[in-house]
């Protein structure tokens, strides 16, 4: 299939909304890295920056939704063009949620800076955030390059993130049982770990959209649940 429309303004519109989603993705990647960095280095100032920058992400989402509505209304996209518009819309929503989670991590960082530090847990959290950020970077590449295989790999990688969350969950329980003075810290850290795990789910959702964009088909089998803390009685009982 020829890649260019006869009406070149249509190409410009589609390129522009895709450029915006890439920019939004870049900002969200940075928010993940900075939020977790502010947590591990107890950098309250950086946490403030993350919270402030989330406004930019929200503005971009609003802009993207407006652009996609325009393209639908004015260009009546079909087939792959329609799928681009739908994918971009859903990706924008998912990115906005990831941005919110990063903002929430930054918010908790300001509180945690006043509490006892748990070096060990921070390391695990750092690794998990790093993995999610890489998945996000890859899913943005998959979107731009129309790479369904890469998107499928990302979906598989989300299980690792879920595993990391499960082991962090266990760690936090242990810390809290060892010393009740850790409870306050661990509660916050657990929310942060859960936030990162949810980020992974949103990245996965974008990856599913990329597969739809490329193949025109929706994945049949629902994702397997990697977070077992809500269903595994052994883990639930520990508390």
């Amino acid at each position: 299939m020829n890649s260019k429309h006869i009406l070149s303004a249509f190409d410009e519109d589609l390129e522009s909304i895709q450029a915006r989603i890439s920019k939004m993705g870049g900002l969200v990647e940075l928010a993940i890295l900075d939020s977790i960095k502010s947590l591990t280095t107890r950098d309250v100032e950086l946490a403030e920056t993350v919270r402030a920058n989330d406004k930019l992400v929200d503005e971009l989402e609003a802009q993207i939704l407006e652009d996609t509505a325009m393209v639908i209304a004015l260009r009546a996209p079909t087939a792959v063009d329609l799928r681009v518009v739908l994918t971009v819309m859903k990706a924008a929503g998912n990115l906005e949620r990831i941005g919110d989670y990063a903002k929430n991590i930054a918010k908790r960082t300001t509180v945690l800076a006043e509490l006892v530090a748990l070096e060990e847990a921070s390391r695990g959290m750092n690794r998990m955030a790093r993995e999610v950020q890489l998945m996000l970077k890859d899913v943005l590449d998959a979107l731009v390059q129309r790479d369904a295989q890469l998107a499928a790999d990302i979906i598989a990688r989300d299980k690792d993130v879920d595993q990391m969350y499960n082991s962090l969950f266990r760690e936090f329980l242990t810390f809290m049982m060892e010393d009740p003075r850790n409870i306050s810290t661990c509660m916050h850290l657990h929310f942060i770990a859960k936030n990162i795990e949810r980020m992974g789910d949103h990245v996965t959702a974008i990856a599913e959209e990329v597969i739809y964009l490329v193949t025109g088909e929706r994945l049949d089998d629902p994702r397997s649940k990697g977070d077992i803390t809500s269903v595994d009685p052994d883990l639930s009982d520990l508390g």
Partner: peptide, 17 residues
């Protein structure tokens, strides 16, 4: 109109050459 099989169909309905 959402997922044509043939690249010629896709080119035509999406307004490409």
């Amino acid at each position: 109109f959402t997922n044509p099989e043939d690249p010629r169909t896709e080119s035509y309905i999406t307004g490409r050459i």
